[in-house]
Simulated scan of single mutants.
Amino acid sequence: MVKSTLHSASLYSKKATESEFLKIENLMKAYPTPDGGAFVVLDNVSLDVQEDEFVSLIGHSGCGKSTLLKIVAGLERATSGLVTLEGKEIRKPGCDRMMVFQHYSLLPWLTVRENVRLAVDEVLEGLSSSEKARIVNEHLAMVNLTAAANKYPDEISGGMKQRVGIARALAIRPKMLLMDEPFGALDALTRGKLQKQVLDIWESHRQAVMMVTHDVDEAIYMSDRIVMMTNGPSAQIGEILEVPFSRPRDRQQLRESPEYYDLRNHALSFLDHYFNSDEE
């Protein structure tokens, strides 16, 4: 039996009541239309994320997943509602939240090491040069890029570029990591390896993670909870699934578990329902 938590006035799980880290309350996001009206992307979205929790957002294209992520990042403002991190309202980007995009966003004229060092210099400016170098080297080693440290972005693969982005995000020690389909541009083999690598890093340096994905298997493998969005416009949280598997996770063992397929089928049925309702 799949354990799901429906979107309701009660909090989504016992874990979510323990403390407040990221809190999204009654969030609504709308854009003005040429006729003077409003196009509502997200409507009445409420969610809590704990300080060491890995949460995935999943839903069909246009349901506002990336918009929600950008609001948490401070790249966009909500039309109404409140988003707070440790009790402080999020109004703009900050180094306590770092974003990893699907497309790598590396500066092509800087080496791998320099791309990571740029972020460290900007945020951890009070540290000595030797301490900054130590942090950069530590995070390059974390993502297995020490040997490629002096290469330029056009000299490395897509998977390596994404690892640079992850190292850069983690090197400034954010409280929360935001990932917008971070593996979406990768081939299947590279994608699987990088998923495991990110999980290994997260296991040793726990922090809050919110990840947008279209991949149900990826969400189950990586997440503590899966937030499933209804279709837009006026998208809402339709259902939240708690992923019951212990960590660290072994992908092969998961796929041998009947519970894995119950959870997977439940998520796919939810998505199929909204896909089919779109066609009607």
Rank of each mutant, 00 (worst) to 15 (best):
D96A: 07
M98P: 01
M98I: 10
M98A: 14
M99F: 13
V100T: 01
V100R: 00
F101T: 00
Q102N: 10
H103D: 15
H103Y: 08
Y104H: 14
Y104Q: 10
S105Q: 06
S105P: 02
L106T: 04
L106M: 04
L107W: 15
P108R: 02
P108L: 03
L110G: 03
T111Y: 06
T111G: 07
R113V: 09
E114R: 07
N115S: 05
N115T: 07
N115P: 03
V116G: 00
V116Q: 04
L118S: 09
L118F: 15
V120F: 06
E122W: 13
V123G: 02
V123A: 13
L124C: 02
E125Y: 09
E125F: 11
S128V: 01
S130L: 08
E131T: 12
E131S: 10
K132F: 03
A133F: 06
I135L: 07
I135Y: 03
I135N: 05
V136A: 05
N137K: 04
N137Q: 06
E138F: 11
H139N: 14
H139L: 09
H139R: 11
L140Q: 00
A141H: 00
M142H: 05
M142C: 02
V143H: 01
V143W: 00
V143K: 01
A147Y: 08
A147P: 00
A148P: 02
K151V: 00
K151G: 01
K151H: 08
K151N: 06
Y152P: 04
P153F: 02
P153S: 09
E155Q: 15
I156Q: 04
G158C: 05
G159W: 05
G159I: 06
M160P: 03
K161C: 01
K161V: 06
Q162S: 01
R163Q: 12
R163A: 07
R163G: 03
V164G: 01
I166H: 00
I166F: 09
A167Y: 05
R168H: 11
R168W: 06
R168S: 08
R168Q: 11
A169G: 05
A169W: 02
A169N: 08
A169H: 03
L170D: 03
A171W: 09
A171P: 06
A171I: 05
I172G: 11
R173N: 15
P174H: 13
K175W: 10
L177F: 10
L177D: 05
L178C: 08
L178R: 10
M179N: 13
P182F: 07
P182Q: 07
F183V: 03
A185V: 12
L186G: 12
L186W: 13
L186Y: 10
L186F: 12
A188G: 13
L189P: 08
T190V: 12
K193E: 15
K193N: 10
L194G: 10
L194C: 04
L194K: 02
Q195S: 15
Q195T: 12
K196S: 13
K196D: 15
Q197V: 06
Q197K: 09
